[in-house]
Amino acid sequence: MTAPSQGLVAERVTVRFGGLTAVSNVSLWIRPGELVGLIGPNGAGKTTFFNILSGTIAPTSGTLRIDGREFAGRRPDHFARAGIARTFQTPRVFGPMTVAENVRFGRAFAGRRADHNPQVPGEVDDLLAFVGLRDDAEVEAAAITPARQRLLEIAMALSTRPRLLLLDEVAAGLTEAEVQRMAELIRRCRDELGLAVVWIEHAVGVIMRAVERVIVLHHGELIADGPPGEVVRDAAVVEAYLGAPMEVAP
């Protein structure tokens, strides 16, 4: 891989917690406007890897470049201002503030300058309409359902007017219909707002149908990276992720 100047490039990224290596030697490139799924069994290092990509933890070694600039070791607010936004596995909204205030917050900080993505609307109302939360604008964020808090988290992430959106299990615990709507919303983030999206999800089926590229982590190592059709047939993935090759009826 020649060093690209656009998008996010991780090279030989490793994270160790004491004796445990959570992420080991991972190299990958997220191009602008890509829709990528990130899967792997429990404890594979998916969330740790997200924490590195958003600056929440610094890698032990390796480099991390955003549009050619080195970001490894910088603080999360620098990542946010460089156009990287994320959600958390359990929704982390500002409970005592209203839904609209939650979205206004990111707009007031990382989203103040539109230079990284002018395609994302700057108006709080438009962002709420985009995720379908306009009717809840004046409700306290703590009072809406967990499913809606996930939508709010996405609106908060969008309020920073990012170019890359990192979604950590946004479909977990949703009903089948809600999952479909979520997948649709994620696709619209890419198609209408021009975002690159990396989406972690446990439900492999949902991911495989929604994305163009799948990255598989196992024991902190990247074991596959390619189109969904290829990845599901990959021997290493079948072995690691599913435990054993799938039984095929004779």
């Binding site: 929440t56 999360p76 500002f94 917050f105």
Partner: peptide, 10 residues
Amino acid sequence: ADEQRAETLG
């Protein structure tokens, strides 16, 4: 309200 969240919002 949530320091880490605030940080990831810039």
